[in-house]
Amino acid sequence: MKTCLVVDDSSVIRKVARRVLEELDFEILEAEDGQQALDQCHLDMPEAILLDWNMPVMDGLEFLVQLRSSKNGDKPKVIFCTTENDISHIAQAVQAGADEYIMKPFDREILENKFQEVGLI
């Protein structure tokens, strides 16, 4: 079973994502901000990361930059999932190493589709 780390400061979003991804056969880990996510990745690198942008302590972009420069940090597929829906944010995320990008609001089909896109399903 593949592991997906869901990083979002909203417990509602984490819950929704968990429900969909568990149905797609992922084991779910959760983090409320970038720092918690980074600590989790240093303990055990997941196969996938669903990542919010705006979070306290450390935002999603900063997390991604640090992840990609850490040991084995190139391994997880990272899918941003954020309300930052303008093209400049998307370009910034892709440049920093995001594999895919979901613009909120999203539904089950979009989530599933993006995980297919990066080869996780």
């Binding site: 093209i87 998307i90 613009m103 089909e109 589709n113 993006k114 896109e117």
Partner: peptide, 20 residues
């Protein structure tokens, strides 16, 4: 729409071939 471009279109192709 935002919904339509998120259905099947890889993000890199969205950046490359679309304007917002």
């Amino acid at each position: 729409t935002q919904f339509e471009v998120q259905r099947g279109l890889p993000i890199k192709l969205l950046l490359k071939y679309f304007k917002q």
